[in-house]
C-alpha cells in the first residue's frame, strides 16, 4: 500500500489518498491535508465536521453520508458544500483521516 508523509509522520493511505488506519491520524495533520484539498485555513466550522466524522467512524465503523452529515453534524448541507466544495463526505473523511466512505447500495 502507498505511504505518505504528513507533518513528518509516515502514514498508510489507499489508492484515493484516504487513510487506511485512522489511529495514525493526529489533529496537527488536518491543516496540511486540508491544503491538499484547496482548503485554507481550517476554521472552527471545518473542525466541527472533522470531529463529527471521526466520532461517527469510531462508533459505527463508517463515515456518514452527506445527507446524514446535514441531519446530524449541526452544519446544514448548503454550508457543508461551502466548507468542502469538492464534496463534503469525501473531503471531510480525508481531513479526518478515516477510510473512504463505502457508499452502500
Amino acid at each position: 500500500m502507498p505511504e505518505k508523509n504528513i507533518t513528518g509522520t509516515t502514514v498508510e493511505v489507499g489508492e484515493d489518498g484516504f487513510f487506511l488506519h485512522p489511529e495514525q491520524w493526529k489533529e496537527e495533520m488536518a491543516p496540511e491535508l486540508a491544503r491538499e484539498q484547496g482548503i485554507d485555513p481550517v476554521t472552527d466550522r471545518h473542525w466541527q465536521v472533522i470531529r463529527f466524522m471521526r466520532k461517527q467512524y469510531l462508533e459505527k465503523g463508517e463515515g456518514p453520508s452527506v445527507r446524514v452529515l446535514g441531519k446530524t453534524s449541526g452544519v446544514p448541507i448548503k454550508e457543508l458544500y461551502q466548507l468542502f466544495p469538492k464534496g463534503p463526505a469525501k473531503t471531510a473523511a480525508k481531513l479526518a483521516g478515516i477510510p473512504k466512505p463505502r457508499g452502500c447500495i
Binding site: 453520508s65 452527506v66 445527507r67 452502500c104 447500495i105
Partner: peptide
Amino acid sequence: VDLPIKCP
C-alpha cells in the same frame, strides 16, 4: 436525489 433508495 440521494441514497439509499429502493432498487438502486
